[in-house]
């Protein structure tokens, strides 16, 4: 049974995530994004970006280690092995570029239980070193109570 007192708590990452240029290119290749803006620094700069642009779902991808850390906290009691990903929302306040230093904070927004199934809503706030919001992601995770 997950600990409902976790709702409302925030878990900041220990250090900011540094967006690597080759990581952006690798991620873009993996999702079939061929736009020069994601691969070619000169093309990205010509379009007004400081460096190559990360595909939109990159914002959710790099938050996963911190989310996993929260979910695997033994005090929380979340059934990590039997969860499924229900919903995912990504809002980009600006595009993410190679070279960005991004601080991630995971917020435990909501936890409900219906018919033995737990539904957990997490929100990640992603900000630059000045504290300006860069992206907000939200995910719903669902588990069935182990029989």
């Amino acid at each position: 049974m997950p600990d409902a007192s976790f709702v409302g708590r925030a878990f900041p990452g220990a250090e900011p995530y540094r967006v690597g240029r080759e990581k952006v290119r690798e991620f873009a290749r993996a999702v079939g994004e061929t736009s020069p803006l994601c691969h070619d620094v000169a093309a990205a700069q010509a379009a007004g970006h400081p460096d190559v642009v990360a595909p939109p779902t990159f914002a959710a991808s790099f938050t996963m280690p911190l989310i996993e850390q929260v979910l695997r906290d033994p005090d929380f009691g979340w059934d990590y092995a039997h969860m499924v990903h229900g919903d995912q929302t990504i809002t980009l306040h600006r595009p993410i570029h190679a070279g960005d230093e991004l601080a991630v904070t995971v917020h435990v927004e909501d936890l409900t239980t219906r018919a033995g199934s737990h539904r957990l809503t997490l929100r990640c706030e992603i900000a630059d070193p000045a504290g300006e919001p860069v992206a907000t992601t939200k995910l719903l995770l669902v588990t069935a109570e182990a029989a």
Binding site: V31, L37, P55, P56, Q88, L92, P95
Partner: peptide, 27 residues
């Protein structure tokens, strides 16, 4: 699931002609 979502993002960014134009994606 996140790969399928990324492919949906690619579908939209391909139409827009600009991956930096996609500001929200929800599935």
């Amino acid at each position: 699931g996140m790969l399928t979502m990324a492919l949906a993002g690619r579908f939209v960014s391909g139409w827009a002609g600009d991956p930096s134009a996609v500001r929200g994606l929800s599935v």
